[in-house]
Amino acid sequence: MKGYIEIDQVLCKGCEICTFFCPKGMINSSDKLNPSGYRVAVFNDNSECTGCAICAVVCPEVAIEVYRG
């Protein structure tokens, strides 16, 4: 595993921008609601994440933290 991300479930507004831009298609929207009532994005970790941080660059809510090893 080269990298992984953490999505802040409280800040996420479910805009699906990260889902659209992730080159590996590893971020999906879910049915889980956060306290504001948005359907939050979830990270499907299948060890393909390279920690490229594109999701974090485009995230309007600054809800994504990226780790790279």
Partner: peptide, 17 residues
């Protein structure tokens, strides 16, 4: 693993409206 992207320091931790 090293954190390479996080919230900027001068951005308060307030959810955007």
């Amino acid at each position: 693993m090293k954190k390479i992207y996080t919230r900027p320091k001068s951005l308060k931790r307030t959810p955007f409206h």
